[in-house]
Protein backbone atom coordinates (compact mmCIF):
# COMPACT_ATOMS: atom_id res chain seq x y z
CA UNK A 1 0.00 0.00 0.00
CA UNK A 2 1.29 3.46 -0.82
CA UNK A 3 0.96 6.61 1.32
CA UNK A 4 -2.16 7.88 -0.36
CA UNK A 5 -4.11 4.77 0.38
CA UNK A 6 -3.20 5.09 4.07
CA UNK A 7 -4.38 8.67 4.14
CA UNK A 8 -7.85 7.60 3.09
CA UNK A 9 -8.08 5.13 5.96
CA UNK A 10 -9.90 7.39 8.48
CA UNK A 11 -12.49 8.28 5.87
CA UNK A 12 -13.06 4.69 4.94
CA UNK A 13 -13.56 3.93 8.64
CA UNK A 14 -15.96 6.84 8.90
CA UNK A 15 -17.99 5.69 5.93
CA UNK A 16 -18.13 2.13 7.22
CA UNK A 17 -19.05 3.21 10.75
CA UNK A 18 -21.59 5.87 9.96
CA UNK A 19 -23.01 4.96 6.56
CA UNK A 20 -22.51 1.33 5.66
CA UNK A 21 -23.24 -0.25 9.06
CA UNK A 22 -26.36 1.85 9.81
CA UNK A 23 -27.65 1.07 6.31
CA UNK A 24 -27.11 -2.64 6.85
CA UNK A 25 -28.90 -2.42 10.19
CA UNK A 26 -31.85 -0.57 8.69
CA UNK A 27 -32.09 -3.02 5.80
CA UNK A 28 -31.95 -5.92 8.26
CA UNK A 29 -34.83 -4.46 10.27
CA UNK A 30 -36.75 -3.66 7.11
CA UNK A 31 -36.72 -7.18 5.76
CA UNK A 32 -37.37 -9.09 9.01
CA UNK A 33 -40.26 -9.61 11.39
CA UNK A 34 -40.02 -8.89 15.12
CA UNK A 35 -38.72 -12.43 15.76
CA UNK A 36 -36.14 -12.45 12.97
CA UNK A 37 -37.85 -14.15 10.00
CA UNK A 38 -37.62 -12.72 6.46
CA UNK A 39 -40.59 -10.66 5.26
CA UNK A 40 -41.61 -8.06 2.67
CA UNK A 41 -44.48 -6.99 4.89
CA UNK A 42 -42.68 -3.91 6.29
CA UNK A 43 -42.03 -2.54 2.82
CA UNK A 44 -45.48 -3.28 1.48
CA UNK A 45 -47.26 -1.48 4.35
CA UNK A 46 -46.67 1.66 2.31
CA UNK A 47 -49.82 0.58 0.43
CA UNK A 48 -51.79 0.68 3.66
CA UNK A 49 -54.35 3.52 3.04
CA UNK A 50 -53.06 5.77 5.82
CA UNK A 51 -49.44 5.32 4.82
CA UNK A 52 -50.20 5.72 1.14
CA UNK A 53 -52.14 8.92 1.82
CA UNK A 54 -49.12 10.26 3.71
CA UNK A 55 -46.87 9.30 0.80
CA UNK A 56 -49.06 11.13 -1.71
CA UNK A 57 -49.25 14.15 0.58
CA UNK A 58 -45.46 14.12 1.00
CA UNK A 59 -45.07 14.00 -2.75
CA UNK A 60 -47.47 16.92 -3.18
CA UNK A 61 -45.59 18.96 -0.59
CA UNK A 62 -42.18 18.07 -2.05
CA UNK A 63 -43.12 18.78 -5.68
CA UNK A 64 -45.01 21.94 -4.74
CA UNK A 65 -42.18 23.16 -2.52
CA UNK A 66 -39.59 22.49 -5.25
CA UNK A 67 -41.62 24.33 -7.89
CA UNK A 68 -42.29 27.31 -5.63
CA UNK A 69 -38.60 27.48 -4.73
CA UNK A 70 -37.65 27.47 -8.43
CA UNK A 71 -40.18 30.19 -9.24
CA UNK A 72 -39.01 32.33 -6.31
CA UNK A 73 -35.29 31.78 -6.96
CA UNK A 74 -34.90 32.95 -10.54
CA UNK A 75 -36.27 36.50 -10.29
CA UNK A 76 -34.20 37.01 -7.14
CA UNK A 77 -31.04 35.53 -8.61
CA UNK A 78 -31.41 37.53 -11.83
CA UNK A 79 -31.83 40.70 -9.79
CA UNK A 80 -28.75 39.83 -7.73
CA UNK A 81 -26.78 39.25 -10.93
CA UNK A 82 -27.33 42.86 -11.85
CA UNK A 83 -25.98 44.12 -8.52
CA UNK A 84 -22.37 45.18 -8.28
CA UNK A 85 -19.89 42.64 -6.91
CA UNK A 86 -19.96 43.72 -3.26
CA UNK A 87 -23.71 44.25 -3.06
CA UNK A 88 -24.53 40.80 -4.43
CA UNK A 89 -22.33 39.31 -1.71
CA UNK A 90 -24.31 41.16 0.96
CA UNK A 91 -27.60 40.04 -0.60
CA UNK A 92 -26.40 36.45 -0.66
CA UNK A 93 -25.32 36.69 2.98
CA UNK A 94 -28.75 37.94 4.03
CA UNK A 95 -30.38 35.05 2.19
CA UNK A 96 -28.12 32.48 3.82
CA UNK A 97 -28.42 34.02 7.29
CA UNK A 98 -31.59 32.11 8.35
CA UNK A 99 -29.80 28.84 7.49
CA UNK A 100 -27.54 29.43 10.49
CA UNK A 101 -30.48 29.61 12.83
CA UNK A 102 -31.80 26.45 14.43
CA UNK A 103 -34.35 24.87 12.10
CA UNK A 104 -36.91 24.11 14.84
CA UNK A 105 -36.69 27.71 16.03
CA UNK A 106 -37.46 28.94 12.52
CA UNK A 107 -40.48 26.68 12.25
CA UNK A 108 -41.75 27.70 15.67
CA UNK A 109 -41.50 31.31 14.57
CA UNK A 110 -43.80 30.52 11.68
CA UNK A 111 -46.19 28.86 14.10
CA UNK A 112 -46.32 32.14 16.04
CA UNK A 113 -46.93 34.08 12.86
CA UNK A 114 -49.64 31.82 11.43
CA UNK A 115 -51.55 30.80 14.58
CA UNK A 116 -55.15 32.11 14.91
CA UNK A 117 -54.04 34.85 17.33
CA UNK A 118 -50.67 35.18 15.65
CA UNK A 119 -48.83 38.08 14.09
CA UNK A 120 -50.33 37.65 10.63
CA UNK A 121 -53.92 37.91 11.85
CA UNK A 122 -52.94 40.80 14.10
CA UNK A 123 -51.70 42.70 11.08
CA UNK A 124 -54.76 41.75 9.01
CA UNK A 125 -56.99 42.94 11.81
CA UNK A 126 -55.16 46.25 11.99
CA UNK A 127 -55.67 46.62 8.24
CA UNK A 128 -59.37 45.89 8.73
CA UNK A 129 -59.28 42.56 6.92
CA UNK A 130 -60.71 39.18 7.83
CA UNK A 131 -58.37 36.85 9.74
CA UNK A 132 -56.98 33.79 7.96
CA UNK A 133 -56.89 30.30 9.40
CA UNK A 134 -53.67 29.04 7.94
CA UNK A 135 -52.34 27.26 11.03
CA UNK A 136 -52.52 23.46 10.87
CA UNK A 137 -53.22 23.35 7.14
CA UNK A 138 -51.28 22.11 4.15
CA UNK A 139 -50.63 25.77 3.31
CA UNK A 140 -48.85 26.24 6.64
CA UNK A 141 -46.68 23.20 5.99
CA UNK A 142 -45.92 24.46 2.48
CA UNK A 143 -44.90 27.88 3.80
CA UNK A 144 -42.68 26.14 6.35
CA UNK A 145 -40.83 23.89 3.92
CA UNK A 146 -40.43 26.63 1.32
CA UNK A 147 -38.98 28.97 3.95
CA UNK A 148 -36.76 26.21 5.26
CA UNK A 149 -35.35 25.01 1.96
CA UNK A 150 -35.42 28.10 -0.30
CA UNK A 151 -31.76 28.98 0.38
CA UNK A 152 -30.78 25.51 -0.85
CA UNK A 153 -32.33 26.38 -4.20
CA UNK A 154 -31.06 29.95 -4.34
CA UNK A 155 -27.42 29.11 -3.68
CA UNK A 156 -26.75 26.63 -6.51
CA UNK A 157 -28.98 28.56 -8.94
CA UNK A 158 -27.17 31.78 -8.08
CA UNK A 159 -23.79 30.16 -8.60
CA UNK A 160 -24.85 28.84 -11.99
CA UNK A 161 -26.47 32.10 -13.13
CA UNK A 162 -23.58 34.26 -11.88
CA UNK A 163 -21.23 32.17 -13.98
CA UNK A 164 -23.00 32.96 -17.25
CA UNK A 165 -20.87 35.43 -19.19
CA UNK A 166 -22.58 38.77 -19.76
CA UNK A 167 -21.51 38.68 -23.42
CA UNK A 168 -23.65 35.57 -23.95
CA UNK A 169 -26.76 37.25 -22.59
CA UNK A 170 -26.04 40.37 -24.65
CA UNK A 171 -25.49 38.18 -27.71
CA UNK A 172 -29.00 36.77 -27.30
CA UNK A 173 -30.46 40.27 -27.07
CA UNK A 174 -28.31 41.34 -30.00
CA UNK A 175 -29.80 38.54 -32.12
CA UNK A 176 -33.32 39.73 -31.38
CA UNK A 177 -34.29 37.88 -28.20
CA UNK A 178 -36.42 39.78 -25.69
CA UNK A 179 -36.03 39.23 -21.95
CA UNK A 180 -38.39 36.24 -21.79
CA UNK A 181 -36.85 34.47 -24.77
CA UNK A 182 -33.37 35.17 -23.39
CA UNK A 183 -34.41 33.59 -20.12
CA UNK A 184 -35.88 30.42 -21.57
CA UNK A 185 -33.40 29.89 -24.41
CA UNK A 186 -30.18 30.95 -22.72
CA UNK A 187 -30.27 31.58 -18.97
CA UNK A 188 -32.42 28.61 -17.98
CA UNK A 189 -30.54 25.99 -20.04
CA UNK A 190 -27.16 27.38 -18.99
CA UNK A 191 -28.07 27.32 -15.31
CA UNK A 192 -29.45 23.76 -15.57
CA UNK A 193 -26.66 22.13 -13.51
CA UNK A 194 -27.33 24.55 -10.63
CA UNK A 195 -31.08 24.14 -10.97
CA UNK A 196 -30.76 20.35 -10.82
CA UNK A 197 -28.67 20.36 -7.67
CA UNK A 198 -31.16 22.84 -6.23
CA UNK A 199 -33.99 20.45 -7.06
CA UNK A 200 -32.22 17.56 -5.36
CA UNK A 201 -31.35 19.68 -2.34
CA UNK A 202 -34.94 20.88 -1.93
CA UNK A 203 -36.95 17.88 -3.06
CA UNK A 204 -35.21 15.26 -0.94
CA UNK A 205 -35.42 16.97 2.46
CA UNK A 206 -38.94 18.29 1.87
CA UNK A 207 -40.08 14.79 0.86
CA UNK A 208 -38.59 13.25 4.00
CA UNK A 209 -39.23 16.11 6.41
CA UNK A 210 -41.26 15.57 9.59
CA UNK A 211 -40.45 18.50 11.90
CA UNK A 212 -42.25 21.08 9.79
CA UNK A 213 -45.46 19.08 9.53
CA UNK A 214 -45.26 18.22 13.22
CA UNK A 215 -45.21 21.86 14.25
CA UNK A 216 -47.15 23.58 11.48
CA UNK A 217 -49.56 20.72 10.63
CA UNK A 218 -50.70 20.43 14.24
CA UNK A 219 -50.14 16.64 14.19
CA UNK A 220 -53.24 16.18 12.04
CA UNK A 221 -51.57 16.25 8.66
CA UNK A 222 -49.01 13.53 8.29
CA UNK A 223 -46.10 13.22 5.94
CA UNK A 224 -44.33 9.89 5.46
CA UNK A 225 -41.64 11.27 7.72
CA UNK A 226 -44.15 11.66 10.56
CA UNK A 227 -45.31 8.06 10.18
CA UNK A 228 -41.75 6.74 10.20
CA UNK A 229 -40.93 8.85 13.24
CA UNK A 230 -43.95 7.49 15.10
CA UNK A 231 -43.05 3.89 14.28
CA UNK A 232 -39.62 4.44 15.83
CA UNK A 233 -40.81 6.41 18.87
CA UNK A 234 -44.44 5.90 19.94
CA UNK A 235 -45.09 2.45 18.41
CA UNK A 236 -41.52 1.24 18.93
CA UNK A 237 -41.94 -0.84 15.75
CA UNK A 238 -38.44 -0.50 14.30
CA UNK A 239 -39.12 -3.09 11.63
CA UNK A 240 -42.04 -1.18 10.16
CA UNK A 241 -40.22 2.14 10.50
CA UNK A 242 -37.18 0.74 8.70
CA UNK A 243 -39.34 -0.80 5.98
CA UNK A 244 -40.99 2.55 5.24
CA UNK A 245 -37.59 4.28 5.39
CA UNK A 246 -36.12 1.91 2.87
CA UNK A 247 -39.10 2.39 0.58
CA UNK A 248 -38.82 6.18 0.86
CA UNK A 249 -35.08 6.11 0.24
CA UNK A 250 -35.42 4.00 -2.90
CA UNK A 251 -38.35 6.13 -4.07
CA UNK A 252 -36.35 9.35 -3.67
CA UNK A 253 -33.31 7.81 -5.34
CA UNK A 254 -35.32 6.70 -8.34
CA UNK A 255 -37.09 10.03 -8.77
CA UNK A 256 -33.78 11.92 -8.54
CA UNK A 257 -32.05 9.53 -10.95
CA UNK A 258 -34.92 10.18 -13.34
CA UNK A 259 -34.57 13.96 -13.02
CA UNK A 260 -30.82 13.89 -13.58
CA UNK A 261 -31.04 11.47 -16.50
CA UNK A 262 -33.61 13.65 -18.23
CA UNK A 263 -31.05 16.42 -18.21
CA UNK A 264 -28.38 14.32 -19.90
CA UNK A 265 -30.89 13.41 -22.60
CA UNK A 266 -31.97 17.01 -22.85
CA UNK A 267 -28.42 18.06 -23.67
CA UNK A 268 -28.37 15.95 -26.79
CA UNK A 269 -31.67 17.14 -28.20
CA UNK A 270 -32.09 20.63 -29.57
CA UNK A 271 -33.19 23.37 -27.23
CA UNK A 272 -36.00 24.46 -29.49
Amino acid sequence: MNKRTWLSFPYVLWIIGFTVIPLIVIFRYAFTTGDGGFTLENILTIFDPIHFKALVFSLEIAVGCTLICIILSYPLVLAMRRLKMGKSGVALFIIILPMWMNSILRIMAWQMILSPNGILNLILEKLGMKPLSIANTATAIMIGVVYDYLPYMILPVYNAVAEINEDIIEAAKDLGAGSITTFFKVILPLSMPGLLSGIVMVFVPSMTSFVVSDVLGGGKLQLVGNIIEQEFTKSANWNLGSGLSVFLMVFVMISMAFTLKNDVDGKESTVW
Partner: peptide, 24 residues
Amino acid sequence: SPDKRNINTVFQKYSLFPHMTVEE
Protein backbone atom coordinates in the same frame (compact mmCIF):
# COMPACT_ATOMS: atom_id res chain seq x y z
CA SER B 1 -33.52 48.15 -27.14
CA PRO B 2 -30.85 46.01 -28.87
CA ASP B 3 -33.30 43.29 -29.98
CA LYS B 4 -35.27 45.87 -31.95
CA ARG B 5 -32.31 47.26 -33.92
CA ASN B 6 -31.28 45.73 -37.20
CA ILE B 7 -27.69 45.83 -36.01
CA ASN B 8 -25.66 42.81 -34.96
CA THR B 9 -22.52 42.54 -32.89
CA VAL B 10 -19.47 40.30 -32.87
CA PHE B 11 -18.19 40.40 -29.30
CA GLN B 12 -14.57 40.13 -28.26
CA LYS B 13 -14.81 36.54 -27.09
CA TYR B 14 -16.81 33.75 -25.48
CA SER B 15 -20.10 34.93 -26.84
CA LEU B 16 -21.29 31.74 -28.53
CA PHE B 17 -24.09 29.88 -26.76
CA PRO B 18 -22.20 26.97 -25.18
CA HIS B 19 -25.31 24.77 -24.94
CA MET B 20 -25.97 24.87 -28.67
CA THR B 21 -24.18 23.45 -31.67
CA VAL B 22 -22.61 25.72 -34.27
CA GLU B 23 -25.73 25.36 -36.44
CA GLU B 24 -28.07 26.14 -33.57
